[in-house]
Each structure stands twice: as structure tokens, then as C-alpha cells.
Amino acid sequence: MYTQAMDIPGGPKAVAAATPEEAARNSAFDARIAADLKIEPRDVMPEAYRKTLVRQISQHAHSEVVGMLPEGNWITRAPSLKRKAILLAKVQDEGGHGLYLYAAAETLGTSRDQMVDALLAGRAKYSSIFNYPTLTWADMGAIGWLVDGAAIMNQIPLCRCSYGPYARAMIRICKEESFHQRQGFDIMLSLCKGTAAQKEMAQDALNRWWWPVVQMFGPPDKDSVHSGQSAAWGIKRISNDDLRQKFIDATVPQAELLGITIPDPGLKWNEERGHYDYGAIDWDEFWRVVNGDGPCNRERLATRIEAHAEGAWVREAATAYAEKAAARELAGKRAA
């Protein structure tokens, strides 16, 4: 999910080639992009393309890992054993997505340790959606249905992105995300068919998650900083506003089926456009959360920092043991 942060300021900008050799390399790259061929780790690529990808893929990986926290918050309290098992499996999948994405980013020459250090030092972003709290069980439904639904909209185009390892990781991830989205909708459906209190819980979750989810697609196209270059490089295939529209159009009938109300009085079918019109998005809220002042930014980062620090002795033990085992094996070979 989580390409939203792609479009926020602070990343590298495309720069002109510094030398004739670099210009020649860039033109080989441009030819592959123009022919819609995949770029593979050993292919030549402009430094700015490499940096943009490392930033985007690592942000995506961090989002998966930080995203384990708001849902992990409800595993121990899931109200049935079946739901507990499904939620555990889903959060485990997110860890798996983080792993493939770190591996894809590592093919660009940045180690996982470097990427994790950047996250923990607050230099790297992750999707702002995870800076919102999960306050009731219904949030597990809303996250699956809406957050994962939005993620799929964002990610399906990435399955065709120009960088091979990222595109291939995304194909696998999208298959699992589609299961996540269905399980989220299924939670919502059970709540909406349930008691009055359950339905109220579902409506409350929709009220709290709707606008942050609509913001996940990133700033309006007119304000999007990196979209032009990313589109030219075949990293971004569909604009923020188009994806947002597609998401809203798909979600409105689902909410109707559930019998709950999307908290946007401006939401209305526009016959002429063939799309839903929607109300004004609070971009001040979006930027406030992106810039670190959302409800849970500090909490999420502190939790990741603590888990990493508490786990240091475990990682050190594994390294020390591996070194001892390798030394023993070598000594054994020498003796033989």
C-alpha cells in the first residue's frame, strides 16, 4: 500500500547527467523505459531513479511493518477464535510483505539495516494511515475493507512498474491484499448483520477511517510533487486523483450493501461525469499527520524503537553463535 508518501516533499529530484558517460548510460535506460521493458538490478539506471525506488520501496516496507501494530493491537482480544486466527494470519502476511519489500529494495544496494535505521531515526516515512488508532474491534473490519481496499487500488498498477524486483514482489503482495480486503469486508458484514451495538461499532469505525483513507492516495494531482517524474519512469502509472476516484466509486455501493453511511454529505452520483462527486478533503489534517503530529505518530515510532532495542541482544546472540559455528566447522575441516 502506501505509495502516498511517494508524493510528499523531501526526496531526490531528477538531475541532469554530469558526464558524457553518464548521459550514455541514461540513454540506454531511457530506451528500456520507452520500450516498456523491465529494469533489473544489474541494469544501468540513473542515480535519481535508484534513490526514488529505494525511498518508495523502503517506505512501503516500513508501512507493512508499522502497519502490524494497529492490527496487532486487537489479536489478543479478537472476539472469536476464527477471527483471531484470521487476524494473526493477516498480520503475519504483513510482516512477510515487509520482508519481500526490504529484499527488493536491497537489490538496489541499500541494506535492510540502513533502511531500518532510517525509519527508527525518523528520516524515513511510512504510510500516515497507521498513525491513527484502532479503538474497537470494528476497526479490524474497517482497516481490511478500506485501508487494504485503498492499498490494492494503489498497488495493482505497481505490479506493472518498471523495476522488475518491485513489480514481482507486488504481484505476490496484491494476491494477499485481496484476501485481506475480503476478510475486512466480511468482519463489517457480520457486524452490520449483528446486534444494534455491533452495527453502531461498524458505523463508528467508518466515520473515523473514511477521510484518512481517502487521503491515502496522496495530495491532489495539481499539488503532487513527484508524480510527473515517477510517471515518466514507469514507477507511477495512475494519478492520485484518478485512483482516489476509482476507490470512492467502488466503495460507495459496498457501504450501501452494508447499510452504513459514508460520513461525507457531499457524496453524490454525477451522471455527467459517470463518477461520484465527493466533499472537500482536509489537506491540513493530512499534512499535520504526515509531518509527525497525528494521533499515534510518536507512539508507533516509539514502539518500533523499543522492539528493535529490546531485540538487540537476540540479534547479537544469533550473530555470535553463527560466527562460533562457522569457526568450529572450519577447525573441523582443518583437522580432517
Binding site: M68, G72, Q92, G95, G96, G98, A307, G311
Partner: peptide
Amino acid sequence: WTGHGPVLEEDI
């Protein structure tokens, strides 16, 4: 432990 493991592989 989910989300709080010492290393991502162990979380999984």
C-alpha cells in the same frame, strides 16, 4: 509478540 519481535523473521 506480534509486531514486537526482535527481528522481522522472528515476528513472522
